[in-house]
Design a protein around this nucleic acid. Sequence first.
DNA 1: CTGATGTAGTGACGCTGGTCACAGCGGTCT
DNA 2: AGACCGCTGTGACCAGCGTCACTACATCAG
Lengths: 240, 240
Amino acid sequence: MLSPYGLDIIESCLTCKMRSDRIFCDLPTASLQSFEAIKYATAYPKGAVLFVEGQAPRGIFVLCKGRVKLSICATDGKTLILKIAEPGEVLGLSATVSGKPYELTAETIDPCQVNFVKREDFLRFLKDNSDACFKVAEQLSEKYNNACHEVRSLGLSHSASEKLAKLLLEWSSKNGEAAKQEPRLKLALTHEEIAQMIGTSRETVTRLFADLKKRQIVQAKGSTLIIRNKVALKAMATNN
Amino acid sequence: MLSPYGLDIIESCLTCKMRSDRIFCDLPTASLQSFEAIKYATAYPKGAVLFVEGQAPRGIFVLCKGRVKLSICATDGKTLILKIAEPGEVLGLSATVSGKPYELTAETIDPCQVNFVKREDFLRFLKDNSDACFKVAEQLSEKYNNACHEVRSLGLSHSASEKLAKLLLEWSSKNGEAAKQEPRLKLALTHEEIAQMIGTSRETVTRLFADLKKRQIVQAKGSTLIIRNKVALKAMATNN
DNA sequence: CTGATGTAGTGACGCTGGTCACAGCGGTCT
DNA sequence: AGACCGCTGTGACCAGCGTCACTACATCAG
């Protein structure tokens, strides 16, 4: 089997082991078979752009492996990272459904495997498979929910430190580390990228981290970050 | 016919004149008939709260008449208005589909007519009527799109004046006034509410308006605002 | 080894806008 | 009429943070 970019390609959705974990993929066999017929299994290297905001929607991208950075970008080049998509997520879904341009840009940050489906094929598929249509509604609700959280964090925060604290807590809760006394997390992003996630400048992120370390709230061990004082961090995330 | 709060109640969706204009309501007669069976036509006075963020989803609210303010609110009371919903919009949709708590608060700002559908009834209805399910996906895409715009405006703007200019242009484009030389728009909101829409303080909005007037970019005529210099306003919305 | 490139850390400076504190200015209720 | 209330308009003050400019590493290619 071909294996570009060092990926182990999952050939068929029907035999995919992760199927049941994934909100969109967990479809009845019949629907999944029609899906098989219209999907193109593709692979991308790190740094590939799946689509760009403003483009007319070509179709959906089901992320099977790897992570994808979703961002929006201002005319002056200032960028805001909305989220890092994980496997199981469907990208370009809302644009494909509504026919409006993609509202964000998707760029791989790992080698990725992706199932692409052309817009016309996908819409036909949805009309014929009501289970899938409902899954799409669920996915879109999920996305909407996410966007609302982003709005809340951007719009209701009083300071950059509050937003950074929120981000760190959110990250720690994703690894199931949140319950631990001193949660650890891998800092896979640069200060620049973190700044783009919370809508601030690179220098501010550096300064905030320096401050957190000085106040013994976090501690860096190489590229892992240990949260030493969860309570203080939570206080920062809710107050100002 | 009963007519509370000075409303002319639309009794049946089947005979509703606005049906075809409205993205969700324009369903095949068969689907609409099953919808009729599960909906409750209700009316609310101005200032009524349909649901509050954080509440478990009771169901959906199809707005037939009047406007509804959708907002999120921080623990300290700071509020952000996401949008003013117009007739035809379905409220509480994503929470009802996903089962997660309502992500925002909906409060009427006019006397409103609303069709309410209980969550279980609605989910059953969706399973049985795939046309409706697709409409839901479309509505959710629309909402997601909106949220993305909000994120862009909040996250990528450099200043409050930029956000205000964006808001004014957006409003003028809704009335079809945008094409005119000097678009007019009704300022139906207080400075406080405008501040909450763009995530700034009441005083800043007052100062910004004063500045716009001084620079002859806009002009107030009672509660209508005339945009005298569209070009300058657009420049403010894109630059800094 | 050396230069190039990307990331992180830090000081200085100044602007934007949040906050507080009041002052006018319609309404409306009694 | 007066009292009260919500909205608007302004001045003063200052914290937060964006920006610039530079240094310090680390990694990598040649």
